[in-house]
Computed example of a mutant assay.
Amino acid sequence: MTAAEAMPRQDIERAPAAEGPAPRRTRTTRPLTRSVSARTAWLLRCLSILVPLAAWQAVSASGRVDPAFLPSPSAVWAAGLDMAAGGELAADLAASLGRIAAGFGLAVLISVPLGFAMGTLGWAQPLLEPAVGILRYLPASAFIPLLIIWLGIGEASKVALLVLGVVFFNTLMTADAVRQVPRRLLEVSATLGASRPRVAARVVFPYALPGIIDAMRVNAAAAWNFVVVAELVAATSGLGYRITRAQRFLQTDRIFAILVVIGLIGLAIDVALRLLRARVGRWAR
């Protein structure tokens, strides 16, 4: 009788297995990005506004900074209400928005077709990209003296500055969005017998549209920067002009109020473009 047969049954069951080392317990790696609940997201959004506002109030209330250099939030609010009651804030805001609509709209009308051509046509990229790549590194504000000489000090020079500041960047970003279209979609379309214009209109453009809108979101902020710069020079209306007037009389509370208005309008434009992107590009989420 063997040793295994001589061992009681319960001892055999309790005996450890004489096999190799126990397998390692695998660790589950947490994803790098984790979504939060809607309630937590709204709480974080509120904190991103309230915490800097509270710090601003604390610094101004401490008395360590002269109110002429850093007015309190309440003083800025009062200055904004005073400008709104006098009608100057609405008039300047309308002037700046009109220039944004003209300059940014014209830049989009120029850059989207150029970028679409660079992303779809084999000859367009080597023809256009070198010139666009060089021009985008030229500071748009450096063209202000030339624009005044060429176009005068009226609206044309201000709109042209906006176009120069936005059109080249938006062209390259649009071309990059168009190049992101998967090649398999193009191959399937060609296999089904679709013509090149039909593929561009029905496949490439709808797929690239969310990326084109994202490029517009980024460059809309640049447009606001350039409209303020344009209004700082030889302007009689606009938010940039109002900042210059307030600076002459050391009215920092009015300057801060105008900056807050610019930030809120910019945020509204960004949210509107986000909603537009979510609506027309649900497949790209």
Rank of each mutant, 00 (worst) to 15 (best):
I134C: 07
R274L: 13
T28W: 14
R27A: 15
F104K: 01
L50K: 02
R198K: 10
R99K: 07
E5K: 12
T252K: 00
L89E: 03
G266H: 00
V163R: 06
D253H: 02
A272V: 09
F169W: 10
A85E: 12
V181F: 05
V218G: 07
R282D: 08
I148F: 09
R25M: 13
L53E: 06
A268F: 06
R99D: 03
Y137Q: 15
I212Y: 06
A208W: 01
L267R: 13
I265S: 00
L151M: 13
P52K: 02
V166S: 05
L114M: 12
R279Q: 09
L273W: 01
L250A: 14
M173P: 01
E231W: 00
G240I: 00
D214S: 15
M83C: 05
Y241H: 08
A94D: 08
W77T: 07
G98C: 04
M1L: 11
L53Q: 07
S48I: 09
C46Y: 11
V280I: 08
A90T: 10
R45W: 13
I212G: 05
T171L: 10
L276H: 00
S189V: 03
R202M: 10
S62R: 02
I148P: 10
A41K: 14
L109Q: 05
V51N: 07
V199D: 06
G103K: 01
F116C: 09
V181C: 07
V280A: 01
P139D: 05
A142H: 04
L186T: 05
V199G: 04
D270N: 11
I262D: 04
Y241Q: 02
E231M: 00
G122R: 15
S141R: 06
L47M: 12
